[in-house]
Simulated scan of single mutants.
Amino acid sequence: MARPIWTGTLSFGLLNVPIRLMTAERRVDLHFRMLDQRDNSPIRYERVNAESGEEVPWKDVVKAFEYSKGSYVVLDEEDIRSAASESHETVEIDTFVEAGSIDPRYYEKPYYLVPAKKAEKGYVLLRETLAKAGRVGIAKVVIRTREYLAAVVPQGAALLLVLLRYPQELVDASDYALPDKPASSYRIAPRELAMASDLIESMSGEWRPDDYRDEFRDKLRKAIEKRLKSKGVTATVEEDEEHVAEDAATNVVDFMALLKKSIAGKKRTPAKAAKKTAAKKSGAGKGGAGKGAAKKTAAKKDAGAKAARKATRKAAAGRRRTAG
């Protein structure tokens, strides 16, 4: 079963509906791996230090903004989190607009809003009201580390959350040399317009998405199946577990834990919060030097272990070539 992107609340007015944010699209692309044609071994992309040429482990990778060529300002995760809205697990509707008033260029990516158990009443109330009024809700939502503009749209039995682009993300049509004069300026005769209208009318029909298929993907899959049945199929190569992204994690949020955390946050007094901040700063000052030395020692051990693993892989590749 698909996992939720996060679990939180759909809010409008004084009504709050517990919901789960679920993906509404399915990736069907055919993914390819690049191999070394000499022995069909997979080619890996490594995080390499541009100065030393050494591989950098995930734990030592930080995010930075290049404010001028070769000059960076480093940000930590707290900087990024603090820039986002405080309502990380809330779809808070700000206003309701006519469904047809949103320019199609703004629509980006759909999600399903799924009601939690015993939250169906508020969910259905909003869905039916929006459908009857022909309106959609405009909201802001934080997904992972970015705040998005979104539209809450009724769609059959579901409420869709469709991410929207911000105006500054769109290119203005005036940036391009488009034919923006009246049709008569391009010597288009009334008879030609009438014939084009008749052609469109003769080709008109109902929108049936199931009538369309990705023919390129179908042909490519057949080519893969044909190649599998022929000679020269590469052998299976087991990859090291170390190359799985060390920062890979699910984005599942436990709803009850979130509620408890919210309640605890509301009870915390400003004085206690200030003490906690001071304690964090004090701890960082005392343990900074020790942590730095520990990191250097761990880095040396990590480099030695990786060098040994690389030597082992080279020897194995040599044996395969000799055997071939």
Rank of each mutant, 00 (worst) to 15 (best):
A2K: 13
I5A: 00
I5L: 09
L10C: 03
G13L: 05
R26D: 10
R26E: 15
R27I: 12
D29F: 07
H31P: 04
R38C: 07
D39H: 10
S41R: 12
I43P: 00
I43F: 03
R44F: 15
A50H: 11
S52M: 05
G53A: 03
E55N: 08
V56W: 01
V56D: 01
W58N: 12
K59C: 08
K59I: 09
E66I: 07
G70D: 07
G70L: 05
S71K: 15
S71C: 11
L75Q: 02
E77D: 15
D79V: 05
S82A: 15
A84P: 01
S85F: 02
E86W: 07
T90I: 08
D94R: 13
A99Y: 04
G100I: 01
S101N: 06
S101D: 06
S101P: 04
I102W: 00
P104N: 04
P104F: 02
K109V: 06
K109G: 02
P110C: 06
L113S: 02
V114Y: 05
V124L: 10
L126P: 00
L126H: 00
R127N: 06
L130P: 00
A131I: 02
A131S: 10
A133W: 04
V142M: 04
V142W: 01
Y148F: 14
Y148E: 02
Y148N: 01
G156L: 04
G156D: 04
L159Y: 00
V162R: 03
P167K: 06
E169C: 04
V171N: 12
A173T: 11
Y176S: 07
Y176F: 15
A177W: 05
K181Q: 13
S185Y: 12
Y186I: 02
L193Q: 07
L193H: 04
S197P: 01
S197R: 15
D198Y: 11
S202Q: 08
P209Q: 06
Y212P: 00
D214I: 04
F216S: 11
R217L: 12
K222L: 12
A223H: 09
I224N: 05
K231L: 09
E238M: 11
E242K: 13
E242V: 10
H243F: 14
E246L: 09
V252L: 08
D254K: 02
M256D: 11
S262R: 12
K266Y: 13
K272F: 08
A274F: 08
K275I: 10
K281Y: 12
A284E: 14
G285H: 15
G285M: 15
K291A: 13
K291D: 11
K295Y: 08
T297V: 14
K301W: 05
K301N: 11
D302V: 07
A305W: 03
A307C: 03
A308H: 06
R309V: 08
R321D: 09
A323T: 13
G324N: 14
